[in-house]
């Protein structure tokens, strides 16, 4: 059994599917001999050949459009956008075609593709390399949006995403690509999509988050534990469709909720979660729901990027505010 980082778990999942499903192809810029700029496809072209792991010309629209074409004709393309900052031209194809192919053809054609991209800040990257704009995809009917936050979940969720018969946008939190290793059995076992993962049980407050922010949120929960406050931590994992039931069940127990995300505050997934709580969880709530999020500004270049992103302190401030309400 291998001890893997998150990015290595991505590679292991890709390798498993390439090995076991001939219709899977991996394509993107620099995914071949270079193994991807983050090494997420490291060694795959050497192992599976350049007809399965395909270096593309530099053209995102082509990558998205052709993935849709291949998917509709019986293949399972796993396309990579090198960074989320370069995914935007692909949105045209994802919205106008991938997301609605099954629906508009009444199921005659469908689109079993995965669009992978590393996202998020905190690695001192250049301009356009650090944004978190997952909500753009979550807003589109017909797309699944999945974000792993641990090596195990990266492996299991990516397998599930590739096997899913519909398009999945799979966003990888690159700040925690190499944060720690864990045992990831290479058994081809997928993890369920469309559900939240409760990372830590607690009774006083529910902290809801996803992606790299899981790190700060767990740290905040540790700090709270030292003060005798018991925080439940939920990794949303699939941000669309949202597993509202698990979140509401938790809030039914704790009565309080703080949502943490790196993406800009307005219209972020935190807003949707808060709306779901207002709708179906209101009578469980003892205090207002708070969001700790990126500001509604352009993601700063790296000198200031950590100021933009929710810190443990900002999470604790919000928790304290929520706990003060009696």
């Amino acid at each position: 059994m291998a001890n893997l980082t998150l990015v290595e778990a991505v590679t292991q999942a890709l390798a498993w599917e390439l090995e076991h499903d001939d219709s899977v192809v991996v394509l993107g810029e620099d995914v071949g001999i270079n193994g991807g700029v983050f090494r997420a496809t490291n060694g795959l072209q050497q192992r599976f050949g350049d007809q399965r792991v395909i270096d593309t010309p530099l053209a995102e629209v082509m990558i998205a459009g052709m993935s849709i074409g291949m998917a509709a004709q019986g293949m399972k393309p796993v396309a990579e956008a090198q960074f989320m900052g370069f995914i935007y031209p692909m949105i045209d194809h994802m919205v106008c075609h991938a997301a609605r192919m099954r629906h508009r053809t009444r199921g005659r054609l469908h689109c079993p593709m995965v669009l992978r991209a590393p996202f998020g800040g905190g690695i001192h990257a250049p301009e356009h390399h650090s944004e978190s704009t997952e909500t753009l995809f979550a807003h589109i009917p017909g797309l699944r949006v999945v974000i792993p936050s641990s090596p195990l979940r990266a492996y299991g969720l990516l397998l599930a995403a590739i096997r899913d018969p519909d398009p999945v946008v799979f966003l990888e939190p690159k700040r925690i690509y190499r944060q720690y290793k864990e045992e990831v059995p290479d058994d081809g076992e997928e993890l369920p999509l469309d559900v939240c993962y409760v990372l830590r049980d607690g009774s006083d407050i529910t902290l809801v988050t996803w992606g790299a922010m899981v790190k700060e949120t767990l740290q905040a929960a540790d700090a709270l534990a030292e003060q005798g406050i018991s925080a439940e931590v939920i990794d949303v994992a699939t941000i669309k469709p949202l597993d509202t039931a698990t979140i509401i069940e938790s809030v039914a127990k704790t009565g309080r909720c703080v949502i943490v995300h790196e993406a800009a505050r307005t219209g972020g997934m935190g807003a949707e979660i808060a709306a779901q709580l207002a709708d179906a969880g209101l009578w469980h709530l003892h205090a207002p729901v708070k969001r700790v999020a990126g500001y509604d500004t352009v993601m700063p270049l790296y000198k200031m990027e950590m100021q933009y992103m929710p810190s443990v302190q900002r999470i604790l401030n919000a928790v304290n505010e929520v706990l003060e309400v009696s």
């Binding site: 810029e29 620099d30 071949g32 270079n34 270096d55 593309t56 530099l58």
Partner: peptide, 11 residues
């Protein structure tokens, strides 16, 4: 070169 992709692979 475009990172690791040689000119010959663009077209």
């Amino acid at each position: 070169w475009a990172i690791s992709v040689p000119r010959s692979k663009q077209n």
